[in-house]
């Protein structure tokens, strides 16, 4: 589904990603772990198409196509979803109506009829229930005045409504209380299916107790230094990252 080959990315004259290779197949859940500033968000952002990053080498294929040629919105319409590490507040723009516009833009792109207000509200209520989002949040401005944890939950709610093919969750677990973590994990697990794939960026094993990953990567210094299975995450939790660096000769 997603194939990243020798990806080099520069931000403002600084090389951040220095040759990432990563393949995610349909049905898989990958976890990316790594120290602060190692480039995890950079990688997620580049996949989602955030402006400001220069790809100096390498390529990203999504469903066999050159992803880097698509605008951010085209990527959404093609099924990519990024849950932001820091969701943005947009006062004055309604949470639900924004989502409706997004869902319908995607449906138009797919040649499907748009959802009318009733069908959409049914979908929204169902998904809000799934992630136990208080319906009052639906009526509010996008993330406006939401607490840190509420913003993260809203991201998962949006993901549930948009039903992406490839979901990138950038530290969605950070700042969540224990109940919220369970709920978010439940939302993610509900979405798991043989046709979908997920990439979870996280610092904590805790999330992976709820969402068992198929593959775990360690990203440090702009490279993937080690790849393993769920056991690797547990090892990182107890031993930190230094040994991975040493093993990789850095």
């Amino acid at each position: 589904m997603l194939k990243i080959e020798n990806l080099h990315v520069r931000v403002e004259d600084k090389d951040i990603l220095k040759g990432i290779n990563l393949e995610v197949r349909a049905g898989e859940v990958h976890a990316i772990m790594g120290p602060n500033g190692s480039g995890k968000s950079t990688l997620s952002n580049v996949i989602a198409g955030r402006p400001g990053y220069t790809v100096t080498e390498g390529r990203i294929l999504y469903q066999g196509r050159d992803l880097l040629r698509l605008t951010p919105e085209e990527r959404v319409w093609e099924g990519i979803f990024l849950a932001f590490q820091y969701p943005v507040e947009i006062p004055g723009v309604n949470n639900t109506y924004l989502l409706k516009a997004g869902v319908n833009a995607r449906r138009r792109h797919q040649g499907l009829p748009e959802l009318d207000a009733m069908d959409f509200m049914r979908l929204v209520r169902e998904k809000a229930k799934l992630v136990e989002l208080d319906p009052s949040f639906l009526a509010r401005g996008v993330n406006e005045g939401f607490s840190g944890g509420e913003k993260k939950r809203n991201e998962i709610f949006q993901m549930a409504v948009l039903e992406p093919t490839l979901a990138l969750l950038d530290e969605t677990d950070s700042g969540l209380d224990i109940d919220a973590l369970r709920i978010v994990a439940h939302g993610v697990n509900q979405l798991r299916s043989p046709e979908r794939a997920m990439v979870l960026v996280t610092h904590y094993q805790r999330l992976l107790d709820y969402i068992e990953p198929d593959v775990v990567h360690v990203l440090a210094d702009g490279r993937i230094l080690k790849t393993g299975d769920a056991a690797l995450a547990k090892e990182l939790e107890t031993r930190g990252y230094d040994w991975v660096r040493k093993e990789a000769g850095i």
Binding site: G49, V76, P87, I90
Partner: peptide, 21 residues
């Protein structure tokens, strides 16, 4: 970018932010 990452076109996102403002 947030709006585009939720599926709005760039033009739509610009207009929406301008309106909201």
């Amino acid at each position: 970018f947030y709006l585009r990452a939720r599926g709005l076109s760039e033009e739509q996102a610009r207009q929406l932010l301008t309106f909201a403002f």
